[in-house]
Design a protein around this nucleic acid. Structure first.
Lengths: 344, 344
DNA sequence: CTGAAAGCGCTTACAG
DNA sequence: CTGAAAGCGCTTACAG
């Protein structure tokens, strides 16, 4: 018993075959779903395998089938709480489907992405999910040539022909515009998400459109680059400007937290003096210290859509790419004045 | 040129050999560091490889050498900001060393760990890092039998014989005790880290020893389980008890944030009414909303030690396990009253 | 230094 | 349904 468990990873199909008194190919078939084997054979082989502690070597399997059952997951920075959560959910969902996750940290620099894609290709991953990372069109083509499906998570890429899953960013921006306008705000500024990203541009676009529909316009727009330092600088700029805003729509929660902290440090009360609205609804938003009104990106539904799309494309390589947008509700909390007549 | 790049992943060493007019084994040698090849041969092969866009298939390589250049990284929950950061740093460090990261999410349940270790073994990872996850002794033995080194990150495991990297938890707890005592606090409570973990027990032990050395003792100790819900409940218990504490040492920052929020919601000021000290020094601790005094776990040094230890054990399987403790300084911020006579 | 050959642990036509 | 054989893309003794 004990001896059987030892060195389990050195046991091969040949050992099992010998013990069961059958051929090596028979052993292989027993472990290949859908192969034709008799109940008797299955029984004999399974017992021998159990006694020896055998399980098929996935590496050898991958070499032959060309399917590694590994998904490459590419992420950029993990300081924005949205991404760790995405990793956690994506990993769980993928593990539940029998896949494994090869994790790559990459900045948004072209050189790094290139190296990562090369590695991904070398390891013959079955699919790629990039979270918050753009991929150059050259890389896209290489993945396509290799027949590796790619799904962009929380990032669109116009013209790439890649599948993507995002929240309805334009609509989300519009909702914020309407909400703040109805709240009686007259001078609404926007610290935008990175303008190099589609999410950042779309949220801004929706915001501007929403205001325009109400015959209003943003007081000022500054690119917050999705990082704390830029958001801090942007807030200070707003506070020093001729007309100080009475509301700020921030491109994501990660930046909104610095914005709120900075306003408070300047003696301003949120929302009495200035309202703040974010985007994402990461868990921290609900913490009492911030109590942030924000647009919720439905993490679970986004993850589900991402995994479904990826697995569908793996199963059918000819499946056309899909751009999925998930509805994004406004979570009303305490960081922004409520529309008139609306109860708390 | 373009044609050469296409289908790069289908190019094998045989193709390169043919194009360069050499044997397949020669091609292999050129891509094997340390193999004996002439400069002339290297030149010819490299050019042919470049023209074809060839790179060796790591899967095939792994099958033969038994070295996958993959490290298994096992983590539990990612809502505590300490772990995403650890993943980010560990991944970067490992990628820099030419390793790749296979990520596994696991709860601390025995069944899940078992499944994860089985997968890890099947994929022939070269090493395993577990962050905040304990591994049963049975699993430990199976890894040892397979010759796979394991390093525990931020978790010790008495009697496992495994390498581990932690901060100096006992000493950290002592520092907090001394600091709070010197700050004139008389009723110091402790919401401890999970008592099922060595880190939680050691921090508590140091705290109690530190107080005892000053002829003091904790007012009350409650296990916070390292999660927000338990920490919230613990805080409420403290507030309802006969003697309300004037200081609370919390087993990690992740819990300390809920503690501070809850105190404030009960109309108490931090630190004027109650001082709070955490453990970890995650980035959020420095955010103005919390401005948390806390013991710093030096992430970079811990990551460095972890990677160094793991790679050393991979290089020399006979290397004995090491338990590394990294000094943990107290980061004095605004959430706890300062010792008398000390300037801000 | 170089090539021919064996072999890593599997899957998958191919006969029977 | 089952077995013998070829082959996935490499590395590594083994001769020369």
């Amino acid at each position: 018993m004990d001896g059987g468990m030892r060195n389990a990873q050195k046991v091969t199909s040949v050992d099992v075959a010998r013990r069961a008194g059958v051929s090596q190919s028979a052993v292989s078939r027993v472990f290949t779903p859908g192969a034709s084997v008799s109940a008797d054979m299955t029984e004999k082989v399974r017992r021998a395998a159990a006694e020896l502690g055998y399980s098929p070597n996935p590496l050898a399997r991958a070499m032959i089938t060309g399917k590694s059952r590994i998904i490459g997951l590419v992420v950029a920075y993990l300081d924005n709480q949205f991404y760790p959560l995405a990793i956690e959910r994506l990993s769980h969902a993928l593990q539940a489907e029998g896949y494994h996750v090869l994790l790559f940290m990459a900045s948004n620099s072209e050189g790094e992405i290139e190296k990562v894609v090369t590695d991904l290709l070398a390891y013959r991953v079955d699919g790629i999910i990039t979270a918050s990372v753009a991929i150059t069109n050259d890389m896209t083509r290489r993945c396509a040539d290799a027949g590796i499906p790619v799904v962009l998570f929380n990032r669109g890429q116009p013209g790439s022909g890649l599948s993507s899953v995002t929240s309805a960013n334009v609509e989300g921006g519009r909702k914020v515009a309407a909400f703040l306008h109805q709240g009686g705000h007259k001078q609404i500024a926007h610290i935008s998400g990175w303008q190099g990203s589609l999410t950042g541009r779309e949220r801004q676009q929706g915001f501007e459109e929403g205001l325009a529909a109400l015959d209003a316009a943003p007081l000022m727009i500054i690119d917050g680059m999705y990082d704390r330092a830029s958001a801090l600088a942007a807030t200070e700029t707003l506070l020093r400007s001729a007309v100080v805003p009475d509301a700020i729509f921030v491109g994501n929660d990660h930046m909104a937290f610095v914005v709120i902290d900075t306003l408070r440090q300047n003696g301003l009360r949120v929302p009495q003096d200035i309202s703040v609205v974010g985007y994402d609804d990461v868990p921290i938003s609900a913490w009492p210290a911030y109590d942030l009104t924000t647009v919720r990106q439905p993490m679970n539904r986004m993850v589900e859509a991402t995994v479904d799309t990826l697995l569908a494309q793996i199963a059918d390589p000819d499946r056309p790419a899909q751009k999925i947008e998930i509805g994004a509700p406004l979570m009303v909390r305490g960081s922004a004045r409520l529309p008139q007549g609306q109860a708390t």
